[in-house]
Design a protein around this nucleic acid. Structure first.
Lengths: 245, 245
DNA sequence: TAGTGGTCTAGACCACGTT
DNA sequence: ACGTGGTCTAGACCACTAC
């Protein structure tokens, strides 16, 4: 447990590696608390800022989680989710000891923005249903989903009569609206948490996040929904089974 | 262009937003250089460390790129790549004014590790061909690919006779080995750049990266290759077309 | 040589959660 | 009240790049 300040390797990196090996050696388990920043300062003889930078590295790797006023903890393993399934978020996360629910942030019929209208192949005078939900697993916010359902000619008006805190959108679409989703185009990128994400999801600013964008089509190739989602990158692994045509 | 130090909004965030709006207002184009850290310090009346933290935010968002001893520059837009295509990296990035090539880091026949053998459904006594390549677009390193090809009973020995700095692995597999890839299982997660990535790809430590893992199967459902890839998250958007069975 | 970004310190103050 | 992490400073030194 020594820092070599003569080394070309930055001190904060030496500290980060030191803590990493501490984690491995002592076989700390998920949920365990680490020594505080100040303890590391004394033990390693470096400044507060340097320890902070080192631990920030581990946070961005998803190894540990910091809680203001409480401490730093070894984080839980990541969740694996299919990129696209008919069951969606709800069905995808059915497992023993794991319960999911949603908090609705917005649920209304409206006229689409130009961008949304283009994605759905409709006009800005048509109707869409906007459903914006926080997604939770075991009461922890893990994702934010902002869905726009193509409601041209009020074809899916039925949707407005459901409660999506508990019901699954895909289930209602399939069972009540008679739409089978056959195909989807999806893009995935990484960006950092915006102020809105910070407020809505409680994720610190600048933390890397998955940004997914998806257009789902019915069996007749007509666009049914356009979704923009943000997932916590420290908690998710996405999986896909791909076939070549 | 003022900083309100009384605000509950952290100064570094105000600075980051200030710079963001500067970027938008002055319509700086990709490749343009930003004012130096010290200029921002004076203009905004904040310390070096605070400006650095603000700009680090933008760097992690992929908005700007820092070059040691040179300056900070507006970054180029992201590359979109399919999650899985038969053409692979080479074919996927064929576009006017865009040329791709590879640098081979390792290319050898060997006995697989336990982990690789399991993925390919073979024994550690069988043979695999390990092909590790840096992937470049316009001479810039954008990915590192580490592929293990199932060479049980020397079925694809042919591969060793090719030069994968210029040739495409999938093309050789298809045309010379008579293997058509029919299906693939892929996982995608985000983690930060390790020391190896830092050295091999020249990406600063801790920067978020896409980590992809893929097993590709031939038409007879036998595993053909196992690949672990790392992509620069500031440069890539992945896209997929998904179908429900 | 001059300018750039990168690291580091010692100490300050804050907001937060637990006790 | 106390300990936690979060922010911020003023100044220092370094390594790198360009001229």
């Amino acid at each position: 447990m020594k820092i070599n300040s003569e080394s070309t390797v930055p001190v904060y990196l030496q500290v980060a590696n030191e803590i990493k090996s501490n984690i491995r050696d002592k076989t700390l388990k998920p949920g365990d608390m680490l020594p505080s920043d100040r303890v590391y300062c004394e033990q390693l003889g470096v400044s507060h800022m340097t320890v902070k930078k080192a631990i920030d590295l581990l946070v961005n790797e998803g190894l540990v989680v910091r809680k203001k006023g409480v401490g730093t903890f070894i984080s839980e393993p990541k969740i694996t989710q299919s990129l696209f399934t008919l069951t969606g978020f709800t069905g995808d996360n059915k497992a023993p000891g794991k319960h999911t629910h949603s908090r609705i942030l917005r649920f209304q019929e409206e006229k689409p923005s130009q961008a949304v209208a283009e994605k759905l192949g409709i006009s800005t005078e048509d109707s869409v249903i906007n459903l914006k939900r926080l997604r939770m697993i075991n009461d922890e916010i893990v994702a934010l989903e902002d869905a726009y359902i193509n409601n041209k000619e009020n074809r899916y008006q039925e949707i407005m009569r459901h409660d999506f805190e508990t019901e699954s959108l895909y289930q209602v679409l399939g069972e009540k609206c008679g739409v089978k989703l056959g195909r989807a185009k999806e893009t995935i990128e990484v960006s950092s948490a915006t102020e809105e994400i910070n407020i809505q999801m409680g994720v610190p600013l600048g933390r890397p996040m998955f940004y997914l964008s998806r257009i789902s089509y019915g069996e007749g190739e007509e666009p049914v929904e356009y979704v923009e989602s943000v997932y916590r990158a420290d908690k998710y692994i996405f999986s896909a089974v791909l076939t070549t045509p």
